[in-house]
Nucleic acid binder design. Structure first.
Lengths: 120, 120
DNA sequence: CCCTTCTTCAACCATTTGGTTGACAAGACG
DNA sequence: CGTCTTGTCAACCAAATGGTTGAAGAAGGG
């Protein structure tokens, strides 16, 4: 299908799936258990779980007729790493821009007629 | 459409859009500029930009016929906050589970008849 | 003014997505 | 064994997504 990072982002782009993930941080749940709060069929929830599973966000084991769903939280790191990498880059760039602006400001005061009083 | 968090996740679920965002951390770009590396029409890139804009990830100003695209990196914090919140919860739960396991291990050695050699 | 440049709008198309219902599979349990 | 519980598979459907092409808008430069 697509790379895992894309699948993880896509999986969490749905509020229902995000809520499931949120609830799974507290405890493992069975499918019916998970489905209870939502106003959709059990099959729809089953599909959502498949999306989360394909993204590597959850795993399902077998326990009698039940299939407990377990969160694999490490996958979240994939996203955090990507996001933080570029957020940091953007910040650095803004910092650099601030430097340039400061420089420009300095250049703008060749005349000692005005000092410090640049408060708007 | 949907809530912003969903739109941001969805926007970044596409590799092309993620690459655009990555490039925009370095500098602002015009549409044609952004489109250059990709093997799709300019119109397709324009659509991708609309998705990013609707998610609040970029803004476009006007500069002659060009429309420079600027990254709004703060929006990334929305995601980071969500992710970190639940990752932390999951971690706390695992830590608690580790405690339980340690407890069980303690309880499991009431008989000194067998130690360590539990390798199958 | 016209023309060229940069970009978007509109219509169209194939695929994916998120939902539905109905049938079936896997175990527990009487 | 039959049957109830739990969950998935299959087929179907409407809407959204990501791409295309063609036409049009907006601003600068002869």
């Amino acid at each position: 299908m697509a790379d895992q990072l894309s699948r993880v982002f896509a999986a969490l782009a749905d509020p229902t799936r995000r809520d499931m993930v949120a609830r799974l941080t507290e405890a493992d749940h069975t499918v019916g258990d998970l489905a209870a709060p939502y106003d959709v069929s059990l099959q729809a929830v089953s599909k959502h779980l498949k999306v989360l599973e394909d993204a590597g966000l959850v795993t399902r084991t077998r326990e009698a007729q039940r299939r407990p769903v377990h969160l694999e939280a490490e996958v979240l790191d994939l996203m955090t790493k990507w996001i933080e990498r570029y957020r940091r880059r953007a910040e650095e760039r803004f910092a650099a821009l601030d430097g340039v602006l400061a420089q420009m400001q300095d250049d703008e005061q060749p005349h000692p007629t005005q000092q410090e009083g640049t408060a708007s």
